[in-house]
């Protein structure tokens, strides 16, 4: 059966099932008529729709909070991420208290301050890597799907090669090659390398998703119809194909943000990603692992932030996807 809520990878409505919604509904039943009279583009309509979704506001609010946190951590805490709260190690592994809300870690540093400062690296890496992955993968996918023939064959084989590289192994190789141990660890350089590694090793999935939706949409009747009107290739790609093929990639992207926050943590844990003194949630989680029994709060707080951030992105993605699909309105 056709459940309009379950992802809309296919843009064709089901041929008349009992005719409950959709096809027999009298046009205009219960639509906010007056407000819809101005012509609006796809994005305008999506925005109109988004504005009325609580899910959107909650997730957008949280994301905004994280972004501000990443940009201006000093608004949230007067503490410093790398200096101990007390003198030396005097206050190591203390539970949450009035002046260190989330407690302190083994080196006596304020976990609250570190969590706040950690947002920056985690979010920058995840968002930038996701953007890069999706842009790279989707453009290759559009090209391969639309051109077909040998272009498609070549690009698909290249994607297969990248897809075949085990993620952790590939990342280690890339990070070690460009940032050998002992080399000066510039925070931005490592971040850039981590982003690059994530993009290079993950774009084939985005490419495949895009390619298959383009392939499916390419022969759709509405594309044939546009062609019969004399539409150019670029018009067909940008006006007809991409708007209809974006949804699955968008959903993938939201999942990817979460996965990348985790991947960043994995690489940090393995010692090839971000390193102290850079602070990220991943670095904190991997640092805390040996002390789970003694200081559970050390793991708990950064993880809670991480989960909330991931969830916000997923919810935002869901809201945007629904807004971009006029059939769900």
């Amino acid at each position: 059966m056709s459940d309009p809520t379950s992802g809309s990878l296919v843009t064709t409505p089901p041929p008349e099932q009992p005719g409950v919604v959709g096809d027999t509904a009298p046009v205009g039943a219960g639509l906010p008529e007056t407000k819809r009279d101005q012509p609006r583009g796809l994005l305008g309509d999506a925005w109109y729709d988004l504005r009325r979704k609580p899910l959107f506001w909650i997730s957008a609010g949280l994301i905004a909070l994280f972004v501000v946190m990443a940009a201006f951590p000093f608004f949230f805490t007067s503490g410093s991420p790398n200096d101990p709260v007390g003198t030396g190690l005097s206050r190591s592994l203390e539970g949450p208290s009035g002046d260190a809300w989330f407690g302190t870690d083994i080196l006596g540093r304020d976990i609250f301050a570190r969590t706040i400062y950690g947002a920056r690296a985690s979010i920058i890496v995840a968002v930038a890597a996701t953007l890069g992955t999706v842009l790279l993968g989707a453009s290759v996918g559009v090209l391969a799907g639309f051109r077909g023939g040998w272009v498609d064959a070549l690009l698909s084989r290249i994607a297969d090669v990248f897809f075949g590289i085990p993620f952790v192994l590939g990342a280690i190789v890339i990070l070690f090659t460009f940032n050998p141990e002992g080399a000066g660890s510039n925070e931005w350089k490592i971040m850039g390398l981590v982003i690059l590694a994530l993009c290079l090793l993950s774009w084939p999935v985005a490419m495949r998703i895009m390619r298959s939706s383009i392939l499916a949409a390419k022969n759709a009747d509405y594309v044939v119809a546009a062609r019969a009107l004399g539409a150019s290739n670029s018009r067909i790609i940008f006006k007809h194909l991409i708007p209809n093929c974006l949804a699955p990639v968008l959903v993938y992207a939201t999942i990817l943000i979460g996965a990348y926050i985790g991947a960043e943590a994995t690489l940090s844990f393995l010692g090839v990603g971000l390193q102290s003194p850079v602070v990220s949630w991943g670095v904190m989680i991997s640092d805390s692992q040996q002390y789970i029994r003694v200081a559970p709060y050390w793991l708990l707080f950064p993880s809670a932030f991480l989960v909330t951030a991931v969830l916000s992105f997923v919810m935002l993605g869901e809201a945007v996807r629904e807004a971009l699909d006029p059939k769900l309105r």
């Binding site: 843009t11 064709t12 409505p13 041929p15 012509p39 609006r40 796809l42 309509d45 759709a220 009747d221 509405y222 044939v224 119809a225 546009a226 019969a228 009107l229 006006k239 007809h240 708007p243 209809n244 971009l324 699909d325 006029p326 059939k327």
Partner: peptide, 18 residues
């Protein structure tokens, strides 16, 4: 010009009638 068979698939679902 062309008029196609299936009115469900021959119109781009993401474009308004206008």
């Amino acid at each position: 010009q062309l008029v196609m068979q299936d009115p469900y698939t021959s119109l781009n679902p993401r474009m308004t009638v206008g």
